[in-house]
Design a protein around this nucleic acid. Structure first.
Lengths: 350, 350
DNA sequence: GTGAAAGCGCTAACAT
DNA sequence: ATGTTAGCGCTTTCAC
């Protein structure tokens, strides 16, 4: 970083700011003998400049190491080409979603400004920051973003999409996997293979996806006269699942199957059960939800509901940046179906 | 969004109402009867404004839904409060590192602008983008960023830190785990438990971390007269490891131990071996590298070298934002030692 | 303590 | 095709 032109003498180390000033379009204009506006045009609409001038300007720019200043551009154009994402800092699921956001945004030549938060209290701070940068849009991705926050977005004139956050429906445009139907399908699968008693392990019972997924399970099972008590792991982590499994294993009468509200917790449940001497699928069948890559790893080979993350994200991008569907009275809520992955954790007799 | 007018009351005739335009400091100034400069002061250095005025301005701002415009602020102040990160789009390791970056940056009230790339060809594009936003710093995190790219950064006047990228040492300030010594320690562990024949599975042999880690293994083992051929998985993925293990398992004479260059590949190797009927640690010992959370999961319980990600990231932050050590002739390169996690994959007789 | 005024580096009419 | 001219919304002297 230090050593550009001018020899950058060692004594001048700290105050390099002044000497090392970045070249601006004015500098390039002077260097190439054209007006500042022409320089600007070369970099924003090159076809409006004659090839000869274009070349002259380009080479002057190269010589000076000129790069257009996106901040200034944004101030003037009122567009930043940046989309914000408010996402939980941890969790396999969110990390995967984030990677997909980033990939698809890059494809549309947008940048991703990340606002991650560790505890849900930090969401407030994140949202304040969001408002300061005049982003072209913002993705609210986290089951724990509350109604009040959504209300704030709703009235903020900033294009917003809630990702996998059923509670947002009607308040803010949203894109979600079909949580209820997905879990119901998994339940049906258990019914099909003859399960007569089940239990459900959720992450945090106050979270809307948790409730909806549980409802999907419980209703479907009820139709077949199967009870399905709710057990709260307390967090969406491997460890929480592991512990919950340990407690479950100590019961006198184990259910035949356990449905877990998310894959990461399910991995913990699986290991926790086996650690307690309960074999899956021998003693107990197990299902997850999300379809994380690890679910397909041979070590787990989990039956789960796979979310088509790429489709979900693509839909979210469309809502945010696409054919501006600002006309609707009520924010759109797009629901994407999931698909079951059948793993060995529900393979009876394996 | 769009259709929804802002929550302001209809009584406001001013210009802001019509075009959904965000209120500016000028609007607030008009509303509160002070000058624009005073409004600005209230939001940037409140202590320079009398409490009475401050309150007056604050309430006017609330009424108008005013939020300072960070773009304008940045243009003027030449600081964005944003740090860029150039990171591979996929891979467990990088996702974890990214989460930690994001956490620690938030702590210092910086935002993270993500430039992720899928193929290393995309790095060029990412770096061009980086230059346009006048970021306060940039983190180059990826083993596959080439020398040419580093050269570009070196001459860009933009504070830069290379993360876990040994090839950058001397070119750009860098922070890395002690790759060579870490792998050597794992090798020593194998020697200690009596291993006499080993093999090494790397990801991509042309990557510098790969080479350095292999060197750490090979040199340490050589000192004890143990050979350690290199096998290339071809990618840093579970699947690549799984496949490599399948091929390894077909050999006539298996080594006693396999050292794998990264955890994610190691998980694949582990499952691939077991799938091929080779038991770990019964038939073969196994080590990884990185210390991913999953390494501690009971299902894997992998012996690996744990990188203190939080420490590495903290160091990187210091280099980037800390006590500006621009004075050094040669860019600093900080090396952080790792620590071994002993799992069941090297527990003999288990 | 507060106001007036001068930009930060760019884009986008509007002239020429 | 190119130059001229206004700003975008802030921060920051410099007066008062």
């Amino acid at each position: 970083m230090g050593a550009k032109p001018e020899g950058a003498s060692s004594a001048e180390g700290r105050s390099q700011n002044q000497a090392n000033r970045r070249a601006t379009s004015v500098d390039v204009a002077a260097e190439s003998g054209v007006s500042q506006a022409t320089v600007a045009r070369v970099f924003s609409s090159p076809n409006k400049v004659s090839p000869a001038t274009r070349e002259k300007v380009r080479s002057a720019a190269d010589r000076l190491g000129y790069v257009p200043n996106a901040i200034a551009r944004s101030l003037k154009s009122q567009r930043t080409n940046i989309v914000g994402a408010v996402v939980p800092a941890y969790g396999e699921y969110w990390q995967n979603v984030l990677a997909e956001f980033s990939r698809q945004l890059a494809q549309r030549s947008y940048q991703l400004l990340l606002f991650s938060f560790a505890k849900s209290d930090d969401v407030d701070g994140a949202l304040s920051s969001v408002a300061q940068y005049r982003l072209d849009g913002v993705i609210l991705a986290s089951a724990t973003i509350g109604q009040s926050h959504l209300g704030r977005m709703q009235s903020s004139a900033l294009p917003t999409v809630a990702f996998n956050q059923p509670a947002a429906e009607g308040l803010v445009p949203s894109v979600s996997v079909d949580n209820e139907e997905g879990m119901a399908e998994l339940a049906r699968h258990l019914v099909d293979i003859g399960v007569k008693a089940a239990a459900y392990i959720g992450g945090v019972s106050s979270v809307s996806t948790d409730q909806i997924r549980y409802r999907g399970a419980v209703q479907e099972l009820a139709e077949h006269g199967i009870a399905c008590p709710y057990i709260e792991a307390g967090a969406y982590t491997y460890d929480a699942g592991y512990k919950a499994a340990g407690q479950l294993a100590q019961r006198d009468n184990l259910p035949e199957a356990v449905m877990v509200g998310s894959d990461e917790v399910a991995f913990g449940v699986l290991d926790g059960l086996e650690n307690a001497g309960v074999l899956v699928p021998g003693d107990l069948l197990l299902t997850g939800f999300d379809g994380l890559p690890q679910a397909s790893w041979a070590g787990y080979d989990l039956t789960t509901l796979v979310q088509a993350t790429d489709v979900l994200v693509a839909q979210a991008m469309d809502v945010l940046l696409g054919p501006a569907d600002t006309s609707a009275d009520r924010p759109v809520s797009i629901v994407v179906p999931g698909t079951i992955r059948y793993g060995k954790t529900t393979r009876k007799g394996a």
